[in-house]
């Protein structure tokens, strides 16, 4: 019954009219993300020593299909080591305009240092501002470059426009806290 099916469909749409919308008024209300959402990268640290997990091996850069990652390594200063072991990433940059958030870097990382987090609000004006350096991605840094710039301007803490379903980020995102 072709018409009956149309009627059924009409019934469905009418029924949905009286349901609560699943989307939210995003900037004012926080969007609810699944923890598995893949957003901006986080460079994690070892929980005990607080040393960076990244050892500057460039495997993420090698795995990156978009050539978005640039790594320059250097020798650790034994007095103040940045990472365990002898090598650390002196320069670690990701061009977020090139990044396709495929997660290959995460997969390639031998130490679990680079993990795709849940932050996604990175819109900005100049293309050079999309190159995220290590200090923009290390765990503990909340918000993207424009968000932090805005927060500094207003003198308020960074406000992230999302919350996690379940409240907890993925286990790989060691030490990352989202509101």
């Amino acid at each position: 019954m072709g018409v009956l099916e149309i009627a059924k469909g009409m019934g469905v749409t009418l029924g949905k009219l009286f349901q609560k919308p699943v989307t939210v008024s995003y900037p004012e209300q926080r969007a609810t993300l699944q923890p598995r959402f893949r957003g901006r990268h986080i460079l994690t640290r070892h929980p005990g020593t607080n040393l960076e997990k990244c050892i500057g091996c460039s495997l993420c850069a090698a795995a990156c299909p978009a050539y978005a990652i640039y790594v320059e390594a250097a020798e650790n200063d034994p007095a103040a080591p940045v990472s365990p072991g002898e090598r650390y990433a002196k320069v670690y940059e990701i061009n977020m305009l090139r990044c396709i958030f495929c997660g290959m870097c995460e997969e390639a990382c031998p130490t679990g240092a680079v993990v795709l987090g849940n932050e996604f609000e990175m819109a900005d004006y100049r293309s050079r501002d999309f190159v995220y350096a290590k200090e923009d991605m290390l765990v503990g840094v909340t918000g993207s470059i424009p968000q932090r710039r805005e927060a500094t301007r207003l003198g308020k803490p960074v406000r992230l426009g999302f919350q996690l379903d379940g409240g907890q980020p993925r286990a790989e995102l060691e030490g990352v806290k989202y509101p």
Partner: peptide, 13 residues
């Protein structure tokens, strides 16, 4: 707005 609500979103607000 109505289309939005039928598609479970608020529509222009």
């Amino acid at each position: 707005r109505l289309l939005g609500r039928m598609q479970l979103r608020p529509g222009p607000n």
